[in-house]
Amino acid sequence: METLLVIVVALLAVAALTQAVRIFEISSQIKGTDTDVKVDDRDNNTQGWLMILFLVFFFGAFAWMVNEYMDVTLPVAASEHGAEIDNLWNISMGVILTAFLVTQPLLFGFAFMFRGRKNRKATYMEHNNRLELFWTGVPAVVLAGLILYGLTTWSNVMNPENTEEPMVVEIYAKQFGWQARYAGSDNELGYANVRLIEGVNTLGVDPSDEHSANDIVTNELHLPKGRPVLLKFRSQDVIHSAYLPHFRVQMNCVPGTRTQFQFTPNITTAEMRSKPEMIKKVKRVNALRAERGEDPWEFDYVLLCNKICGAAHYNMQLKVVVEEEGAFNDWMKQQQTFAEML
């Protein structure tokens, strides 16, 4: 019934539009103005002014969004390499904002300045090698800088220099959840394969491998502050992506192969919670939650899935806790080893 109503309204709207257009056309015929596409000075003037108005509106809205929405973006990076990435981000943003803020006014400004007039004659100008060389050269030089800086950062992030041996942790993905497997006291993961999944051994760890007995499987990822951690990723079914936005870490989990990412968390959960920007964010979120009658939220790092993986893709999360070495060791002691679990 409702659908029918919507269709009727839509049809009536089209009919109304038709009539409006016809009245408009007939009235302009009487007035002697041309309503079809040939544009005249009045159109050029109106549209030219609209161009410049749009520019003002566009930049105004942009400034408003920066002012209003920058608050919701991610806080400071909570990892060592993350700071480097953020630096590169800021410099790249500086470059692209400059390009954006210079070219858009030129575009809409010229559109306004040179809006057509009957007696205006356009200047015949085929090309200008010096100008073209200039705007090929400038982007080329700027890009050379960005590329060099980008590649240096990338190489630092992907091949970190180790001062100490990183702690090895496996991140295991399946529809629809995450688990972590610590390599334990020998810091070496036992062999695992989906073919070995059986009963409580949901990760398919090989019990006959000497490295597997002291592996520790958990449902939360705890990391000690300041210690390098080497995450190794595995998936049981489809491609997932382990995304740790606060640490500037992301890596796909690919069935049939293993991927890895090394980083050093350097801000504990408690420290992050007490950052002014985070206090502000939590307050804002909790005000919204209170309106909806939901429980207040306390900030936690999170690992979420960032590769479409099925119906519950939107709810595949793993709580991540960064703490001081001591607290981390205490938590570790409470966990069951793989041998105990069997």
Binding site: F114, G116, M125, W135, G150
Partner: peptide
């Protein structure tokens, strides 16, 4: 990132085409 160079050339050339034109909107 190299693609940015020919793309920038295109953008600047469009903008310069408007310069001193007699724009029919």
């Amino acid at each position: 990132l190299l693609i940015a160079i020919p793309s920038a050339v295109k953008a600047f050339n469009y903008i310069t085409t408007l310069w001193k034109g007699n724009l029919q909107f």
